[in-house]
């Protein structure tokens, strides 16, 4: 047991997979010689060589397409797409091929691949590099989407992702790599579709994932001073979605705010909100609140960008406005 960063947790998961399963190999831009744009693959090329740590051209469609083919042929590719924004270039490969092949082949073909990618804004990278698009992929049947918020979950979910027989989008938030957390030495894995109650409370439920969990926890600390006990539910995976944990919490608190860094309009937060209204209407003390990214392309200006993303103050005031507490 020791405290490590989320970055190191992911690296550990990759190393472990490379060590234990010879079918596993990595592909991506700048993951080898450059040691990874976010340094997640640091040292791997030296250790595992060019066969298994493959630097690719800047052509995401080709990279993902090659991985789909490799997975179909029996390998277990782990692709790194530098940011989720670039995954748009591989949309056809992801949505029309990786997600569909098992179904269109009547189960004759499996696509056991992981696409690791970096999501989230708030780092002044401009409108085209600051998006949170994991929710888009979570709406596609045939894909699985994990979005860890801490090192423990990152390693546990990555193990499950690599072992999964279907394509998984593994969204690592750019601003969580330095987050520290205890990770046990003993092997463990976190099954998909199991949310985690990060903080228990009776008064209001904050549903979040990835970096939103930290925003929600900040809000919970503020609320605690006001005498309001928030329960923070970390979804951990968007697809499959653990509706039971969310609904159990909502049935207890009757109040819920969904925190989502993605755009509010059609965002994954809207799906969660709708799911709650459909299943827990008679437990609600008011409409489900959403604190989401503003419906604008991410501003470059740091102050403006920050104001376009959910923060603790917005969560607190949403609770006041919607529930009067």
């Amino acid at each position: 047991m020791g405290e490590i960063t989320l970055r190191d947790a992911v690296t550990r998961g990759l190393t472990e997979a490379l060590d234990t399963d010879e079918r596993v190999f990595l592909m991506g831009e700048d993951i080898g010689s450059y040691q990874g744009p976010y340094a997640v693959t640091k040292g791997l090329l030296e250790k595992y060589g060019h066969e298994r740590i493959r630097d690719t051209p800047i052509s995401e469609g080709v990279v993902v397409g090659a991985a789909v083919g490799a997975a179909m042929a029996g390998l277990r590719p782990i692709v790194e797409i530098m940011t989720i924004n670039f995954l748009l270039l591989a949309m056809d490969m992801v949505v029309n091929h990786a997600a569909k092949l098992r179904y269109m082949s009547n189960g004759q073909i499996q696509v056991p691949m992981v696409i690791r990618t970096v999501t989230g804004g708030g780092a002044q990278l401009g409108a085209t590099h600051s998006q949170s698009l994991e929710g888009w992929f979570a709406s596609v049947p045939g894909l699985k989407v994990a979005a860890p918020s801490d090192p423990y979950d990152a390693l546990g979910l990555l193990r499950t992702a690599i072992a999964d027989e279907d394509p998984v989008i593994f969204a690592e938030h750019a601003r969580l790599y330095q987050v520290l957390g205890d990770v046990p030495d003993d092997h463990y894995a976190i099954p998909f579709g199991q949310a985690k109650v990060k903080r228990a409370g009776d008064d209001v439920t904050l549903v979040a994932y990835s970096r939103g969990v930290h925003t929600a926890l900040e809000a919970a600390a503020i609320l605690e001073k006001k005498g309001v006990e928030a329960e923070v539910v970390d979804l951990r995976t968007l697809r499959p979605l653990d509706t039971a944990t969310v609904l159990t919490s909502v049935e207890k608190t009757s109040r819920v705010i969904v925190v989502d860094e993605a755009w509010r309009c059609g965002g994954f937060g809207a799906e969660i909100s709708s799911m709650i209204h459909e299943n827990a209407f008679d437990s609600l003390d008011g409409p489900v609140g959403r604190v989401a990214g503003l419906d604008v392309p991410a501003p470059y200006n740091g102050t403006l960008e920050a104001s376009a993303l959910p923060d603790a103050a917005r969560i607190v005031s949403a609770i006041e406005e919607i529930y009067g507490i």
């Binding site: 009757s254 008679d282 437990s283 609600l284 009067g324």
Partner: peptide, 23 residues
């Protein structure tokens, strides 16, 4: 709110007797 209606129903409380404090 929906939960207020349900609880009032379960407890046979007439909601009109209650002064709402919510928004």
């Amino acid at each position: 709110s929906p939960v207020a209606r349900r609880l009032a129903d379960e407890r046979a409380i007439d909601l009109r007797q209650i002064q709402g404090t919510g928004p």
